[in-house]
């Protein structure tokens, strides 16, 4: 990774620190700044309220020309997060073809948080969950809350 990219990551971190999102904590390791550990609380107004989620943001070598990779380390019942051990999340500005180098990490964090508040079933990675969300909202809420209790406490 080039020095420029590292500097850019440092800047992104500084920006996140300057303007912290509620319920979001970033564990930043200067030795390995390409991997951020994020601790995000489920937003109060969402079904994930009360859950504590661990995420990872990995910056590829080509950053900022390639998007950072976001993955949920904590299991979450969400149409936009893959329901496997990767917990990957790939939509909106995180898509390689949509990513623009000027995009900021803080806007990535915003995106994640907004998706917790309001999932985007039309751009889902887990189609069954998306279907659940669209057609049987009550069931979805119940399962999601159940998962919060089981995995995200």
């Amino acid at each position: 990774m080039s020095t420029g990219a590292k500097k850019r990551i440092l800047r992104e971190y500084a920006e996140c620190q300057n303007d912290p999102l509620p319920g979001v904590k970033i564990n930043f390791d200067e030795q390995n700044m390409t991997k951020w550990e994020i601790l995000m609380d489920g937003p109060d107004q969402s079904v994930y309220a009360g859950g504590h989620y661990k995420l990872e943001i990995n910056f590829p070598n080509e950053y900022p020309f390639k998007p950072p990779v976001v993955s949920f380390k904590t299991k979450i019942y969400h149409p936009n997060v893959s329901n496997d051990d990767k917990g990957s999340m790939c939509l909106g500005l995180l898509r390689p073809e949509e990513w623009k180098p000027p995009n900021k990490v803080i806007s990535v964090l915003h995106l994640i948080r907004n998706l917790l508040i309001e999932p985007n079933p039309d751009d889902a990675i887990e189609l069954s969950i998306a279907n659940d969300y669209k057609t049987n909202r009550a069931e979805f809420d119940k399962t999601a809350k159940d998962w919060v209790k089981r995995y995200a406490k």
Partner: peptide, 12 residues
């Protein structure tokens, strides 16, 4: 972490 000069310096 060393402070990089940034536009946010002005906010304060």
């Amino acid at each position: 972490m060393e402070a990089l000069p940034d536009s946010t310096d002005w906010l304060r």
